[in-house]
């Protein structure tokens, strides 16, 4: 289980969580996200749930914890693309009143064309 955490321009971090979120997996997801928060000091953390396959109340703890951390730093959290059954758990916790839940996060991410091209070139170079 890994979380794909990417840094975008304008201090935006996009964390794509994959697989099941439970007590067993929450700790490593948390560590991976917090490492990037500490390294890149974002003002916006987008937590992407589009590839989450299961979530119990450990997921509420995970989002609440990141919400507290980001609020302390003067930043914001957005929850992106949770499936219906995950949304149900969020609504029960009331966290949907503290953070935005969006079905399409692209408007919040500014792609940096230069960096992306550079990355592609490095990948091509590696292929040889």
């Amino acid at each position: 289980m890994f979380t794909d955490v990417r840094v975008y321009p304008e201090r935006t971090v996009f964390a794509s969580i994959k697989g099941d979120i439970d007590h067993h997996t929450a700790k490593s997801i948390r560590t991976q996200i917090d490492r990037t928060i500490n390294d890149s000091d974002p003002k916006l953390l987008i937590m992407d749930f589009s590839e989450v396959t299961f979530m119990d109340s450990s997921g509420i703890g995970l989002v609440m914890g990141r919400y507290k951390l980001m609020t302390e730093r003067g930043g914001e959290v957005i929850i992106s693309e949770p499936a219906g059954y995950i949304k149900k758990v969020f609504q029960l916790s009331g966290i949907d009143k503290l953070t935005k839940i969006v079905s399409d996060p692209t408007g919040y991410i500014k792609e940096d064309v230069d960096t992306i091209n550079e990355e592609e070139q490095t990948n091509e170079a590696k292929a040889y």
């Binding site: 109340s57 758990v89 029960l92």
Partner: peptide
């Protein structure tokens, strides 16, 4: 980081 919502769920 427990929410205290297990029984509520």
């Amino acid at each position: 980081e427990r929410a205290g919502l297990g029984f509520a769920v």
